[in-house]
Amino acid sequence: MTKDHFSDAVTQIGSDLVERFCSMDERLERKRTKRRTYLKWGTAAACLLLAIGMTFALKSHNDLPADIDSIAWCTQDGVYESNIVFSPWNGWHHNYALNEQLTHGDADSYIAIRVTPNMSYPHSTEWNDFHTIESLNQEAQKFANAGACAIVKNHRLFIFVTREQLKTLAIEDKDRYKLLFAKQRSYEHKEGDIPTLANDVTGFQYEKFSFDLSYGKYETPKSDEELIDMLNKMIREGQFDTDRLSFIIHSDEFLTEDVFADMHFESLYIAKYIKSCYESVLYENINLEALKALSNHPSITSITVYLDIAELEPA
C-alpha cells in the first residue's frame, strides 16, 4: 500500500462519517470560541478587580472634611415615614430626615449623605457582584470629580458636602439618585470614639468563629487575641451607617433563649429545624465572657459574625 493508495482510500470514506466529523468540528470550534471568550472575560475580570482595588484605594484616601466634628449625621431612629413626600431640593430627591437638615440645618456644616443611585443594589451580604461594585465606584468617582468627598464604605456610597456645595454640585441626571441623611452609630462621631473591646479575655473556642471581613470572604481567627482583634476591626468597619454586629450560630441541637441571656441581644431569632439562630447586638453591649461561653457550648458548632447595616429606608 502506497501513500496514494492510502489517501485515495481515505477520500472514499463514507459521507455520513465525513458529516459526523464536520458536525463535531463545528461543535469543537464553538467550544473553543467559548473557551477563548471565557479566557478573554477572565482576563477582563482580573483587570476589573485590579481597577476596583485601585479605585477603592483612591476613595479611601479621599480625606474627610477637616472640621470633622461639625459633620451633621442623622440622629433619628430610622423610622420610615413613607407618607411624607418632599419635592426635590435643587433637583435632588431626598428623604424626610435630610429635608430638615437641608432647609433648617447649619449652612456651613458638612452633611453626611448616603447616595442611592438607581442601579441594581444587592443586599449587604451578597457583594460578590464585582460589576455592581465597579458601578458604585464609578458613581463615587462622579461625585469626587464634582468636588464632593466621596467614600464607598460597607458597599454604600457616602458623600460629605455643605448645603451650598450640594446646591451647585455638577452632577448630571440628578433624577437617578436618592439622597438619604446618613446615619452614624448611636453616639456622636468623634475621633477615637469607636468602642474597642479590651483584648484580655482568653479561653474562646476560636476555631468555631468565622468573620465576614471582606464581604463573602470569611476568615477564622487563629487565637483568642486575633478573635478580639477581628471583632474590633469589624466595629471600626461599621463606622458609618452601622451600629450592630450580627451572629449566626449553628448548633447540633435546638437551643433555648436562656443560652443567649448574657449576650444582650436586641433581637434573637432561633430557627427550630435548621438549628441556627440569628442575633444582633450593639457594639457597646458585646459581652466577651458571654461570647466565650457560647463558643464553649458543646452543642454550638459555628459562630459567624457579620456587620449588621442599619437601614433608613425600607428593605
Binding site: M1, F6, A9, Q12, I13, V18, F21, M24, L28
Partner: peptide, 29 residues
Amino acid sequence: DIELARLIDDFVRKLPNRQMYIFMSRYYA
C-alpha cells in the same frame, strides 16, 4: 483498492468519537 477503502471506512467508523475526529482531522482534512 476497494477493499482498502472499505477497511479504512470500517476502522474509522469503529473508533471512539475523539479518535475518529483526530483521524479525520489528520488524514482527511
